[in-house]
Design a protein around this nucleic acid. Structure first.
Length: 715
RNA sequence: GGGCGGUUAGCUCAGUUGGUAGAGCGUCACAUUGACGUUGUGAAUGUCAGAGGUUCGAAUCCUCUACCGCCCACCA
């Protein structure tokens, strides 16, 4: 054996031999309870970052542990097409060549994006291998695989047929840069310094009512003024009309409970087409919606003489015009939150648009129940509160995106009825005569002749992600895999995607299969830098996991990520820490090297005569096994790792090996000392293996004949 | 407006049935052909944010306060 553990030389060979030996692929053994983790599929648009390395480590530890316990263990890998994220990142690639997606056209764009994801997937899969991920590559999936897509379309159709998906003209979050609608979750609110403008609206028949707004240009689309029903100041005005300035349109003064008497003047202009609260007020009062801003952020025809202007320009002009007629009372600085696109940071515009929605209430109810009755448990448990908090206030989910990259919505329109799209390149087109079908329909059932055209929208990427725990296992077909491995055991992912992903998997899982998709949700935290800062490219504190693997080995990185980390808590990562665990891997190597040199053909501890001290040591070791196993069962991985680390280094190496040195030279004591060392080393290697798989397997190969990865966990 | 989390060694953090405070890095002293210097031995450093309560006993349970951080929301 070399003097140090040469991870660079050994790691990839060790991985290959595991993979080739087929141990990653479980055998279906009826009667045995399987242990299943579906890997959160990394986005196919980039390499793995340190956060991926953390989840890979945690999952691989659990998978190796359960495999060693003799359970049929499946860890199913995959990749996510990551709709908007990938489209935005590939568009950035195109921008480097001064191109936009429109230069390529939809088909070519999709083709090139696909090629882009294929490249990324290959890189990503090799990175997973480098980290030691013992997942079953024979079962790997991609969200755009034909069988997965088919399951997605089938689900869409089922939900439509059962009234859970509807198409509606509603107010949605519109990202002008991405040219698509977004779900509420994809909008990030940021505090922004704005201006509150107080505008006087003349009351028909005399007087005036002052409203305050941060967006004066939207007044062109006002269809009411609202006050709180309990507001004494305006009692006399309610029911009267105001003459909307600039547009010279009469609109009513109404009451609505959402109006805050304390804010501004207590009177609010209502623009149902450009504000979600106003939209709801409009719905309650049957107000018309007048869209004055288009998808391109230009004022529409309905904006009268402001038509064609950009919103910013229109705002200035509206203020100037109001000023001229003396209708601006005052302005004041105002801090408020502005929605921005999660992917590209553009300011999101609420507009009216025809979109597809999931009716969420009936899906949320059993999903809340499942967690309440403990069918699904969260680690750490306090995240259940967060889950309930969101689920109990959940709103319908906009699932259509005006993107090109993703699952195209399986809805087919009769072309005879098709509404011609306008000049906008991205508008979702289609009339009202459509059918929903998982496959391209043969003949148009509406006109009997046309080739139906498919909806141009794609599905929110999280729709397919929500089905992931079972589409990966072959659902909706009743495959052997689905029958055996579903419901899965654990879903391990970041707490930051509880709403995006975990909640949707629970809702759709129960809806589609009748069962919660997993028993346990283990939430890992964010990996931060040494000072506890969030890691980001702009801060320049990115820790590339592959660089760490290159410099210190995968074992060192894994230990560095997992020791001192608790579920749900953020982890501070530093190179120093990784270096320290590189030393630990080397310590393991050298302890084994010593025993390899000094001990040959050791007997079992049962076959030798033990001293009282030996017995005490073995008892202490058994206690360590018991405690560590308990921690593993309770998913206290950081503590288990630390215990093993401390025991192996400071008890086994520093005490036992040191004490054994003179004994091994003594003919009388030699046999016993060797047996005890071998016993503890062997079982320590087994328990350390899930954490540091490479060095333990390498050492095992030097000492024993079989493979460590399938050795039995000690009892 | 509602909710959640944190406050433990110089730094970053563990500490899950309440029982004499732990790790990594850093610091100091000593050891040095011996499995490993990617080492060993020893040492220093903590009123576990503050106050009150429960208890034989609290970093751990309860209440309040302070300061950080985060999430959600229809802040016109």
């Amino acid at each position: 054996m070399d003097k140090t553990f040469d991870f660079k030389k050994l790691e990839s060979g060790l991985y290959d031999s595991w993979e080739k030996s087929g141990v990653f692929t479980p055998k279906i053994e009826t009667g045995k309870q399987p242990y299943t983790i579906i890997m959160p599929p990394p986005n196919a648009n980039a390499s793995l970052h340190i956060g991926h390395a953390l989840f890979v480590t945690v999952e691989d530890i659990m998978v190796r542990y359960h495999r060693m316990k003799g359970e049929p263990t499946l860890w199913l890998p995959g990749a996510d097409h990551a709709g908007i994220a990938t489209q935005v990142s590939f568009e950035k690639e195109l921008a480097k060549q001064d191109k936009t997606r429109f230069d390529l056209g939809r088909d070519e764009f999709v083709k090139q994006t696909f090629d882009f994801t294929v490249k990324n997937r290959i890189t990503m899969e090799n990175q997973l291998r480098a980290l030691g991920a013992s997942c079953d590559w024979t079962r790997k999936k991609f969200t755009l695989d034909s069988d997965v897509s088919e399951a997605v379309f089938t689900t869409f159709k089922k939900m439509y047929d059962e009234g859970l998906i509807y198409r509606g003209e509603r107010i949605v979050n519109w990202c002008p840069r991405c040219a698509t609608s977004l779900s509420d979750l994809e909008v990030e609110h940021k505090e922004t310094e704005g201006v509150l403008t107080y505008i006087k609206y003349p009351v028909v028949g005399g007087g005036e009512i002052v409203v305050a707004t941060t967006r004066p240009e939207t007044m062109l689309g006002d269809t009411a003024v609202a006050v709180n029903p309990n507001d004494k100041r305006y009692v006399k005005l309610v029911g009267q009309k105001v003459l909307l300035p600039l547009m010279e349109r009469e609109i009513p003064i109404i009451t609505d409970i959402v109006v805050d008497m304390e804010f501004g003047t207590g009177a609010v202009k209502v623009t149902p087409a450009h504000d979600s609260t106003d939209f709801e007020i409009g719905q309650r009062h049957g107000l018309p919606t007048i869209s004055v801003i288009g998808q391109d952020l230009k004022m529409t025809e309905s904006a009268g003489r402001y038509a064609g202007m950009k919103t910013k320009e229109a705002r200035e002009k509206v203020i100037a015009d109001l000023q001229t007629v003396g209708l601006i009372e005052k302005t004041q600085p105002h801090l408020h939150s502005v929605g921005r696109c999660q992917r590209c940071d553009s300011v999101v515009e609420p507009i009216i648009s025809k979109q597809w929605f999931v009716k969420i209430a009936s899906l949320a109810k059993p999903a809340i129940e499942a967690v309440k009755r403990g069918a699904i448990k969260f680690i750490p448990q306090h995240f259940e509160k967060l889950y309930f908090n969101w689920m109990e206030n959940i709103r319908d989910w906009n699932i259509s995106r005006q993107l090109w990259w993703g699952h195209q919505i399986p809805v087919w329109y009769c072309q005879a009825q098709q509404v011609k799209s306008d000049k906008l390149k991205v508008i979702s087109e289609g009339g009202d005569n459509f059918i929903v079908s998982a496959e391209r329909p043969g003949k148009c059932p509406v006109c009997g002749k046309c080739e139906m055209c498919q909806d141009t929208d794609t599905l929110d990427t999280w729709f397919s992600s929500g089905l992931w725990p079972f589409t990966t296992l072959g659902w909706p077909k009743s495959t052997e895999d689905f029958k055996y491995f579903y419901p899965t055991t654990m879903m391990e992912t970041g707490w930051d995607i509880i709403f995006f992903w975990v909640a949707r998997m629970i809702m759709l899982g129960i809806y589609c299969t009748g069962k919660p998709p997993f028993e346990l949700v283990y939430l890992n935290g964010l990996v931060r830098d040494q000072e506890g800062n969030k890691i980001s490219k702009s801060k320049g504190n990115v820790i590339d996991p592959m660089m760490m693997v290159e410099k210190y080995g995968a074992d060192a990185l894994r230990m560095g990520l997992v020791v001192g980390t608790a579920a749900g808590n953020d982890t501070a990562m530093s190179e120093d820490k990784v270096r320290a665990y590189r030393n630990f891997a080397n310590k393991i190597w050298n302890a084994a090297r010593f025993i390899n040199l000094e001990v040959s053909t050791p007997k079992a501890v049962k076959e030798v005569e033990l001293t009282a001290e030996d017995t005490a040591w073995l008892k202490e070791f058994d206690e360590m096994i018991r405690e560590t196993t308990k921690m593993m069962e309770q998913y206290q991985l950081g503590q288990a790792a630390e215990k093993l680390y401390g025991y192996f280094w400071h008890t086994f190496c520093d005490k036992h090996i040191e004490a054994a040195k003179p004994r091994l030279k003594d003919e009388q004591q030699k046999e016993t000392a060797a047996a005890v060392l071998d016993h503890i080393l062997k079982n320590s290697l087994i328990m350390l293996h899930p954490f540091v798989p490479f060095v333990t397997e390498a050492v095992w190969g030097e000492l024993y004949d079989d493979q460590l990865i399938t050795a039995a966990w000690p009892k």
